[in-house]
Design a protein around this nucleic acid. Structure first.
Lengths: 243, 243
DNA sequence: TCCTCGTGTGACTGGTCAGTCATATGCTAC
DNA sequence: GTAGCATATGACTGACCAGTCACACGAGGA
């Protein structure tokens, strides 16, 4: 989507530009983000931006796509990595169940947000982008996540990890909302400012155990609900609660 | 907060002004909403607005407060009304449990959004307001809702409607997120555009049964989770599923 | 040496906005 | 009729923005 000029840029310059632009759109919504501010931060001329991109919108779409791809690949690699380690080291190991797969994905998603605050925050903003012209972007992101969750849910139904009478679309909706907004909960619970991390380029000052615990709590809510536990079945007790 | 001039306005003029302003802020986020557009819609002079309010921010705060108060009172009245009718007509009737109280609140909240699209949409926008200067507003709204949900949860714990080992803050978070975003689910599921309704001033083209069914599905998810149903206890079977 | 072409530049245009203020209007009291 | 006050007005200011364009620069090739 960017013009060829952009890809001809020396690696280093392109990187500095991308970082500054990610910053700007992570710190402001589409309309408030300012091309003028990006160039003045970088100390380059405004015209340069328009040598690289057709307009502000193309720049934004490029950054969102980049962030989404980066996050997806990162999560995917981490989850696969975990799976194969487990598979090789321990016993033949059965396929992980729905909740374990979900927990792993969410865990690595959260880790990504902490280690790549620019990308994570930009994506989060894009998800809630209020500008009318950009509705398509948030819709695309939502549909991508929903598709993934839907496949998880369908697999979960097939294996009996999920109750058979579930309304799939409703379940996907609930999973999506809780997963996306887990960020807000983490932010409040651990007093962690993602926007602050964007500005500081900061690392993750959150303990791995604390994070895993929160996600386990989320998984538990999804598995059992808020209601009192019925006579617990054998099936539930033996769910893999390790990791 | 508005200047005295605003309250001296003839009822009718004040009302027209308030409606137009609600429209503007329901259709655009804080930064994109334009005072110029409001006055040109109304055919009044820009200076007038600044006779009524100190600045754009004061106007916005007034509208959010107004919308929040209106919605709260509406829900409260409806829920109380329902309760008293039930209490009088039928048997002495036990106090409703956690899930019934939650369902009722959500039901009347959703009804409000359909019948008062201006107010509902403005509040929804305010909740997700991305403008940095307005963070305090969304935080206040969130805290208000959380306080209410927290009281519900604590009552639910006391009566045993909720499992005793629940992390209250996490439960409140989950309830809050699912409740707020139910709007998105309804909008997609029933192809209902709230922004469209704001522009049209429209009524509710959604069947009451369909709405109640969605909310029941939500309550069921919250009660039981997504997992397979354990040996169902007597306790669960006898939960009041009427209404 | 000069030409070309990819790249960089920043003053400039036209637009939108929040907020101001000198002036006008209309109403009430005397 | 007129003085005084609350309200209405809209042209204007200063700020910011996206996007443009005529020009400058520099490296490589002839």
């Amino acid at each position: 989507m960017p013009k060829p000029t952009f890809f001809n840029l020396p690696e280093d310059k392109r990187r500095r530009f991308t970082d500054a632009a990610l910053d700007e759109f992570a710190l402001h919504d589409y309309r408030s983000a300012s091309v003028s501010r990006i160039v003045s931060t970088l100390g380059i001329a405004k015209g340069s931006v328009y040598q690289y991109f057709e307009d502000k919108q193309e720049l934004y779409l490029y950054l969102v796509t980049l962030a989404a791809q980066t996050k997806f690949e990162c999560i995917d690699a981490a989850v696969r990595g975990e799976a194969s380690v487990r598979g090789n080291v321990s016993a033949p190991s059965s396929e992980p169940g729905f909740f374990e797969r979900y927990e792993r994905t969410v865990y690595h998603g959260a880790r990504f947000d902490f280690t790549h605050p620019r990308h994570g925050t930009l994506l989060y903003n894009a998800t809630y982008e209020p500008s009318g012209e950009m509705l398509a972007v948030s819709a695309r992101l939502r549909e991508q996540s929903a598709r993934y969750l839907r496949s998880l849910v369908e697999a979960g139904l097939a294996t009996g990890d999920l109750r058979a009478d579930l309304d799939v679309e409703f379940a996907v909706f609930a999973l999506y909302q809780l997963t996306i907004s887990l960020r807000d909960y983490l932010s409040e619970r651990f007093r962690f400012s993602f926007k602050g991390a964007v500005q500081a380029g900061a690392g993750p000052p959150i303990s791995d155990e604390a994070l895993r615990e929160v996600i386990a709590e989320l998984a538990r809510l999804l598995r059992q609900g808020l209601g009192p536990v019925a006579t617990t079945t054998e099936e539930q007790r033996t769910q893999p609660r390790v990791c």
